[in-house]
């Protein structure tokens, strides 16, 4: 009984036909999957960036939410620039898709670089400021 269980065998081998067809099918599937993962990550980066900028989230919060949700691009670099006038956030993410031969079509290193800028003050205040500066200029003249 034990010998029978141990002695069980399965076929192992590709037909010559399969050897020609399967690489092409797999290459197409890998390229499509890589593109899908990249698009997923790009959408995540854009949504996190927009939410982060508008809700004034901290750099650490943005990084943490990206780390949780990104699939392929694992290296994350978030930079923020806060002024009196505006708040600018830049997200740079980088990842690797090491697929031999397929890297001739799809880049080995994939990256997303997005930035968003939002005014820190309301548009009415901005108009008042502009008017003030114009009147000051006129006075100087």
């Amino acid at each position: 009984m034990f010998y029978k269980i141990i002695d069980k065998k399965v076929n192992a081998g590709f037909t010559v036909e399969a050897v020609f067809i399967i690489p092409f099918i797999l290459a197409v599937i890998f390229i499509v999957l890589t593109a899908l993962f990249y698009l997923h990550d790009e959408i995540i980066v854009i949504t996190v960036l927009n939410k982060g900028v508008v809700n004034c989230e901290t750099k650490e919060n943005i990084e943490a939410s990206l780390e949780k949700r990104l699939w392929m691009l694992q290296e994350i670099d978030v930079t923020e620039n806060n002024n009196k006038l505006y708040r600018k956030v830049n997200i740079y993410t980088k990842g690797e898709a090491p697929l031999p031969l397929i890297n001739m079509i799809v880049d080995r290193f994939l990256y997303i670089d997005k930035s968003r800028c939002v005014l820190n003050i309301r548009p009415e205040d901005m108009q008042k400021r502009e008017k003030k500066s114009e009147s000051e200029k006129e006075k100087d003249e």
Partner: peptide, 24 residues
């Protein structure tokens, strides 16, 4: 798969095996 592809081409070009034969 790439190595098997090259080996399969070799088998077919030199007519050592037909297209439906199984290779390990």
């Amino acid at each position: 798969l790439i190595v098997a592809f090259i080996f399969g081409l070799y088998l077919l070009i030199f007519k050592k095996k037909s297209i439906s034969t199984r290779i390990p």
